[in-house]
Design a protein around this nucleic acid. Structure first.
Lengths: 213, 213, 213, 213
DNA sequence: GATGAATGAGATTTCATTCAT
DNA sequence: GATGAATGAAATCTCATTCAT
């Protein structure tokens, strides 16, 4: 099925905002990339900023939704964290443009919108904090600075969007698995997740991600 | 000694490019922040892009120089990596604005300048790659995907510039030490670096960093 | 039929470039003269320099085309030169602004564009050189310094654009006829062109000029 | 004797105004060409426009003075015109930059200054008109449109500044002599000026020109 | 639904000129 | 005499957005 014009606009914006930045992307660039006139753009979007905010909200919503679904009912903190890491990496590797926009263009939002976006991100990050706290409480994890470690984890995983290429040698699953391993090491996980458990986790998360949206 | 106007311009640029992005920062913003008229700005800089490039080059030069100095003659790969991580974290935590500009605004450079900046960055990253490769060869490290792990490490450490605040509870040394620990865990380091060795390393790197430039 | 906005812009540019020079004419002057805002100007032109280049090219194209048509198949060098002089004078007297721009603003062009414009002018002047050479070979003309005489002729004829006014007592045809006479004298023409032949020539050239473009 | 700074400024201005136009020449261009700072320029000139006006006035003064001296007491209109043409050509060929500035940059003057410059030029041209009128009255010349012929003559002779190069094959004297011949032909001069008389004329005019200023 | 035309505001950069040192 | 520093005004050009068709 061919893309709707609205989708083409959205994609153009994601691509250009990611590569040139919000302020570096002109309305005419968007129009050209979307294949319509700049006046027509305004049938499919509000202001340029609303377009940006929409992209961010959608991307974060999806991540948040996916993360909730992937952790819901998972009691073992190691597994919960594995799911969070895998989903995050999957998201950032398979949609690097969107996620880079979310990470890099917050400063371009108006104060009110920024608050809403940051709130979403905070909510998402609280899932990570909860998993880590649980793990520490249950002595599944050992780290002297949990807050620092959490931020280190998140930055490490988000960084995937800045370098991963689907055309490279590494498949998404291997990538996600490797990152899950790194994360557990960072957290001083006692007892590894077995290869089979990791495989299962990746399968679950992959399905969740595919079904979200 | 009071700042020279040129320094004030440089600082204004670093601050604003970091918080609003290169394209989000107008020449008037720069002038206002530096406390001069926008015409006067042009006594102290070439174009806005050259100002950006100068900031990036200086920052990368300093990092590269520091890293070379901090690793020169250090044979143990674990120690070498510890030095690299500590220096990187120190740099990103103590000068978050500069480093964020380097990390986020490459897209705003013209092609020719971008090439030169990226070459500097590649040269810097090769120091990390060398340390990791040495460690693997000597079985001091164990990781299935060295390249991925290296990128994960770098993103994790650079991320410090995005959240660390000197006004928070965590001192620079503890921060750097914690990250060094995380890094060794990620690399599957066999045998820890002793607390004393870590202390020594932090002291050395701290001195190097202070003396660079 | 009313003028299109594009034509109004072109005319404004011709008028102002001719009277104030390219660098003496601001984008605001152009906009005001054309009756639109300075931002709207950019719907109808590329850069200011491209506007200038377009004017020059069009003017020279017309002159070159007309000169070719007016000399094609005319074997007698005296007559050929008469046609060239008459066309040149007609062009410069009836469109003094365009031709002055062509003559005076070459220095404002970028190097690449200048080359193209100068090539056109050289091609045009070669028609004069050919006619004069033919005349000398056939002993219809006698001049010790043909190249100098050619340049003197061209400058004399182009000068018309600097002083002729359609509101003065002298009609275009008499003007052109007088200049043809001056030219033949300068070339030491043996045997005059008869009044009737001159009349015919003027009629032909006038038609060519009217039909060109 | 080395040039004074004031002379260097004057020369820089002449050179640049001639090649790039008044409005195309910046104060910094002038400073660079003169080898001093742009602030120092203002020790040696008033405003940029006064500099231009000074150049024009001086150039026209010299021409006017020379023409008066070269025609004073010369009764034969043919000879008088020969002197005028020779001086004009000499002036334009030996100082092409100044004369081009005079011819092309009048539009850059303020109204009041322009009036004064144009008055000088008119006075100069009246010498030509007088010589031509005398010649017609004495039947030494024959032309149907004296005013037109005068303008044609002047434009032809001024044009020399646009193409003549001292590095070319043609000496100044031959050039001036050739133009004198062209002028007499254009005016339908009855009886040529003898080669000896022409030689004398060129010698006289050359001396006058050398001594003026 | 689509777009050419339009524009006020603002972008970066240069202008001619002044002045304190 | 010389100049670095400074600047208001203006340069060219682009911006995001609207609207009539």
């Amino acid at each position: 099925m061919a893309l709707t014009t609205e989708q083409r606009v959205r994609r153009a914006a994601v691509k250009l905002f990611a590569s040139k930045g919000f302020h570096g992307t002109g309305i005419r660039d968007l129009a050209q990339e979307a294949g319509i006139s700049s006046a027509s753009l305004y049938h499919y979007m509000g202001t340029k900023e609303e377009l940006l905010a929409g992209i961010m909200r959608e991307c974060l919503d999806r991540l948040l939704l996916g993360a909730r679904e992937a952790t819901d009912g998972v009691d073992d903190p190691r597994l919960r964290l594995t799911h969070l890491v895998a989903l995050h990496v999957l998201a950032h590797a398979s949609r690097p443009a969107e996620t880079r926009v979310v990470d890099n263009e917050v400063h371009a939002l108006s104060a009110a919108t920024r608050r809403r976006i940051v709130a979403l991100r905070d909510e998402y990050e609280s899932l990570w904090a909860d998993a880590i706290d649980d793990g520490l409480r249950q002595r599944a994890f050992a780290t002297a600075e949990p807050a620092v470690t959490r931020l280190a984890l998140l930055e490490m995983c988000s960084g995937v969007a800045r370098w991963y290429s689907a055309r490279g040698p590494l498949g998404l699953d291997r990538l996600a698995g490797h990152y899950a391993g790194l994360a557990l090491r960072m957290l001083g996980s006692t007892g590894d997740v077995s290869p089979k458990a990791l495989d299962d986790a990746l399968r679950v998360v992959s399905t969740v991600w595919r079904n979200t949206r």
